[in-house]
Design a binder for these strands. Structure first.
Lengths: 143, 143
DNA sequence: TCTATTTAAGACAGTTTTGTCCGAATTATA
DNA sequence: TATAATTCGGACAAAACTGTCTTAAATAGA
């Protein structure tokens, strides 16, 4: 469904949202360790998220990453589209270039329903709620 | 969402369902051409579908492929799982190995809703209905 | 100013996916 | 039986994705 890069990115953002509620900076090392993600590869993903203005980064000692906006104003959809693009929201299920409402592929209408529900889910899930679930111990990032 | 192999496989199966209503055999060449898919790669996919008993193949002149069961008894889900496996139905959205109902990742419950809807859609869409839509000119395989 | 710590950037390597090619096996037909 | 058409199987190649390494740049603190 999502690329590995996207999985690491989502996990990192959720972790940062949980641990940096007051804007503290978290280091790559800590983020990668606590989300069970490969450090060097995660670094690339975090760079990407910084360039897309989802994260703010600072070099040097006490440097690290923090969310660029409050967690309740960031949703999962913006992370996914920053890393995987929006083909998951827009693309044809059969990979047809010109599939559309008026000239649909055989899956189009039924596929659109599922895709829209995925989109809604990602748009309506904020980092604040996922952080809250982690705090309450009803969900887990490292299993 | 689906791999390229799976996209080609679905398109091929839908095309065969439409064109081989009485068990006629269709050649790889024709299938690949009419679904806009690379011929050699599609050949691999059709081999896979034949081994999984979704297609019946015959070599030689007048040889080709035909559905192994009537189109109204074949759904999209069986094609997807034959090619991409069922990680799309079962796997964790964040790639966590041990994500489960009792120890869920932060996306688990919401993700499951979407995934189940996708599964239902694929299970309840038969090749007969897709072929019918093509016949009626309300959907298209080559765009 | 010097040092240690951290992210940034680019090159590189490994793996998987996608795609091609060719010879072998099978089969209908002349 | 010979030929042509077709799928099968394996090897191979190209591209995309995943992952690592190394050096540079920035920054806090001694």
């Amino acid at each position: 469904m999502f690329s590995k890069a996207c999985e690491y990115g989502i996990k990192a953002m959720i972790y940062i949202a949980q641990k940096s509620k007051n804007g503290e900076r978290l280091s790559l090392k800590q983020i990668a360790r606590e989300t069970n993600s490969p450090e060097a590869f995660t670094a690339k993903v975090l760079q990407q998220l910084s360039k897309q203005n989802l994260l703010e980064s600072l070099k040097g000692p006490t440097g690290g990453f923090t969310l660029q906006r409050p967690a309740d104003q960031m949703n999962l959809a913006s992370i996914v589209s920053a890393i995987d693009g929006d083909s998951i929201y827009m693309g044809c299920g059969l990979g047809l270039r010109e599939c559309s409402e008026i000239k649909p592929c055989p899956l189009h209408h039924k596929f659109k329903v599922v895709r829209d529900e995925l989109k809604d889910m990602l748009e309506n899930t904020s980092l604040a709620t996922t952080a809250d679930d982690l705090d309450r111990g009803i969900s887990f990032l490292r299993i």
